[in-house]
Computed example of a mutant assay.
Amino acid sequence: MKIACSGSSGSGKTTLVTFIAEKLGIQHISGSAGDVKQEGDKMIVDEVYKYPGGGHVGVIRYSALNPEYGLMNQKLLQMRRAQIIRENDNFITDRSPADNLAYFINQMAYHPMITDALTEEFMRDCLKAWEELDKVIYVKAVQPHEVEVNGSRVSNRFYQKSIDAQFEYWIKNYFIPNAIDGPDVLIIDYWDLETRKAHVIEFINS
């Protein structure tokens, strides 16, 4: 069973993924950018382009000024997350190929160097990894409070809502209709944690 949880930062993915992993006794593989990078990746991306750090916000700001860095970083994250899906089994991860595409479009598509052809190539790579999954849980940004500040993520809830709209669009209009024998998808559009837990276990066991 290959399961991925997808959604914007602060939507509650990690809480849900941790519960599922413990409940089903499967491996939880972190899909966060810092965790998926392997030895040598930091040199390839961060040191070559002199990225100064600063979490998610820092990456966005630096990518805006250095599109070559942004493109390399997004390609690397896509490759590493696809590698997790390809090389592991019986796991759940808190990022999916939809995350890669949504953030690529959000952070990179306005650069003149990001052509339609380059974007379509990135989309195909994401779709190929998506097709290897068995289940995807898309958690919408519906929390009734401010986005939790953790020192890395963007805490502006309107930014979160805009990213969530990207997720919904690409999942419903690209991944689901174009995947060949793709994963089953559950969309969670409510906040109550106990209801979420009950529904995801029923979904995974179906």
Rank of each mutant, 00 (worst) to 15 (best):
E87Q: 12
Q160R: 12
D35F: 01
N156H: 14
H111R: 10
L186R: 04
D94S: 05
P144Y: 11
A64F: 05
N66I: 06
A198F: 05
E202L: 03
I201K: 11
G25P: 10
D89M: 05
D99L: 02
L101A: 04
V147D: 00
G7I: 02
V149M: 12
N156D: 15
D94Y: 03
M1V: 07
A141F: 15
G151W: 06
V136S: 01
L101S: 02
L127A: 13
K23Q: 13
I29Y: 07
S206L: 03
I3N: 03
W191I: 08
S152F: 15
Y159M: 04
V36C: 06
V48W: 08
F167S: 05
S11Q: 02
M72Y: 08
N88F: 12
A198K: 15
W191A: 12
H145V: 14
Y49A: 09
Q107G: 12
K197H: 13
R86P: 00
L16A: 09
D134S: 14
L77G: 01
P144T: 12
G40N: 10
W130S: 04
I26H: 04
S152P: 01
M43P: 00
K13Q: 11
G54V: 04
L127T: 12
D134W: 10
N100M: 08
I204S: 02
H199Y: 04
M108R: 09
V17G: 09
I187T: 13
A64C: 03
A82K: 05
I188K: 00
F203C: 10
G12F: 07
D189Y: 05
K161M: 14
T14V: 02
A165E: 13
Y159T: 04
G55V: 03
G58F: 02
E132A: 10
P144N: 13
V45G: 00
K75I: 09
Y62G: 03
R86M: 08
Y169G: 02
L133Y: 05
S9A: 10
A165L: 11
Q78P: 00
P177L: 07
L77Q: 07
D134R: 12
E131W: 10
V17H: 01
E131N: 14
D46H: 11
L65R: 14
N73W: 01
K2S: 05
I3M: 11
A21E: 02
L118M: 11
Y174P: 06
C126G: 04
G70A: 11
L65G: 13
